[in-house]
Design a protein around this nucleic acid. Structure first.
Ligand SMILES: [Zn+2]
Ligand SMILES: [Zn+2]
Ligand SMILES: [Zn+2]
Ligand SMILES: [Zn+2]
Lengths: 139, 139
DNA sequence: CATGATCATGGAAACCGTTGTCAATTTCAA
DNA sequence: TTGAAATTGACAACGGTTTCCATGATCATG
């Protein structure tokens, strides 16, 4: 019963709780870094619960659609990370791919101010910081 | 001699001022929207100054490297737009691809505050607003 | 339990934006 | 003018992602 929460989350996302999907979602839990479909496929390949590459791609896309994952663009490919429901921004380490969530009142106010000043109808915005996390910077 | 400025800009970027490169850079002048390599290649195909697709790709990449262009990521591909030298953010219309530059003191302060608070070594940041420009919103 | 109807899986092939290859051409300093 | 070095462009290759489709799992319903 170690994946009761996982199955629940999948069902809430409107997805059947298959072995593959719970495996993918479980692999994401507690992981501080964003990971790509290919990387995840590689990691699962070794374990007793492999998941087809196509299925990993599909599952990550579905979970991101459902708002359970954030898509973190990386050089030429796309990485994913479990995220909270609420709107947030990111602190992204380019060395270890760790992603921390940030709330940013000043950014939200900036967006509103700019939009109303220029008659712009906002559908979304993005504000992320790239660099080296404390651990990576020290080495 | 209508492209004296263009040639000059190319040379400053460390690139020879060939017909193809001046054509590409001229096509970008005065254009309010970001455009992809394929789109630009298509537009130039009709004119008397066509440029090979590979060359368009290479030229846009070089100009972006030189800091003359901003790369604006679009669904699965990359669009480019002439930009100013100084650091700035973007107001991006998803309908007409118009891109306006924004300066944002609040954002810069936010980045510094977050970084110093979490011992993060910043190498870059991004803050862009997506939606519909005044013209597109009204239709 | 059947028993279909629907959804999910995964290997292989296709897709598509982009980059590499390389012979022919152009640029530019001397 | 001239030759070394840079540039061009048709074409092939690349790599992440998606599509195909035959097989297998899931889930109502009787
Ligand atoms: Zn790190
Ligand atoms: Zn925000
Ligand atoms: Zn617009
Ligand atoms: Zn900034």
């Amino acid at each position: 019963m170690r994946d009761a929460v996982t199955s629940e989350a999948l069902r809430e996302a409107g997805l059947r709780a298959t072995r593959q999907r719970t495996t993918v979602l479980d692999a994401l839990r507690g992981r501080p870094d964003a990971i790509t479909a290919q990387e995840l496929h590689g990691e699962l390949r070794g374990t007793g619960e492999p998941v087809g590459l196509t299925t990993v791609y599909r599952t990550l896309a579905s979970l991101a659609d459902a708002g359970l994952l954030d898509a973190i663009p990386r050089e030429g490919e796309q990485a994913f990370r479990l995220c909270s429901d609420d709107h947030h921004h990111h602190l992204i380490c380019e060395a270890c791919n760790r992603v921390d969530e940030l709330t940013a009142e000043e950014v939200e106010r900036w967006v509103d101010a700019v939009a109303s000043r220029r008659g712009f109808r906002v559908t979304g915005h993005r504000a992320d910081i790239f660099g080296l996390c404390a651990a990576c910077a020290r080495s």
